[in-house]
């Protein structure tokens, strides 16, 4: 019995709806059909925004970790330690080289596992034999200065190339000045 009542009620409703539609159609014949009556359909749940990260994000690297991730070649290419220059025939540390070495010492204190090689170089206006010794002296006075700034001499090795590896192949004062130098190579970290 209940079913019958529900069915007849449904019939009545559909009939009423249809008759009202007909009524409107008479007034506005050119308008397109109205949109489907979505209100009456079951509503789709609104899109759930997922705020949680799906993949694990790497934590920000510390400077130390970035440093360790690089190869020695990459670090040396960046040349964190600036070279210094010398006077003709001399191996004492010039005043303009001191701040450079101080900055280098700071860097070495920061990266305290780093071992460096100081290369002593000369210009072409000295003899092969004496120049090789002079390059060694330049490397040694650079080492001594860094040691005086608190860098352990254990972390520093020296080598001399004499005049065999000029930075600038020219034969003038500008080239010679560039070539009289102590430069740094990081050999361990």
């Amino acid at each position: 019995m209940k079913k019958l009542i529900i069915l007849s009620l449904a019939f009545l409703m559909v009939f009423a709806a249809l008759s009202s539609c007909r009524g409107r159609a008479k007034i506005e014949e050119v308008t397109p059909p109205p949109p489907p009556e979505v209100e009456e359909q079951p509503k789709v749940e609104p899109v759930e925004k997922i705020e949680e990260p799906v993949t694990v994000k790497e934590p920000e690297l510390t400077e130390e970790e970035i440093f360790m991730s690089k190869t020695l070649e990459e670090i040396n290419l960046e040349a964190p330690l600036q070279m210094i220059h010398f006077d003709y025939d001399k191996y004492f540390i010039r005043d303009d080289a001191k701040p450079v070495l101080e900055a280098n010492a700071e860097w070495l204190k920061k990266y305290d596992a780093v071992v460096i090689l100081i290369e002593g170089h000369c210009d072409e206006r000295g003899t092969e034999e004496y120049n090789l010794a002079l390059g060694e002296k330049r490397a040694k006075s650079t080492l001594d200065y860094l040691a005086s700034l608190g860098i352990s001499a254990e972390r520093i090795k020296t080598i001399s190339y004499g005049k065999s590896l000029p930075l600038d192949p020219g034969h003038n004062e500008i080239s010679w000045q560039k070539n009289r130098r102590a430069q740094f190579l990081i050999i361990r970290k």
Binding site: E129, L132, A133, E136, K137, K140, L143, T158
Partner: peptide
């Protein structure tokens, strides 16, 4: 020969 073997001096 010449060397910096001991104190780093040639």
């Amino acid at each position: 020969f010449c060397s910096t073997l001991e104190e780093g001096n040639p």
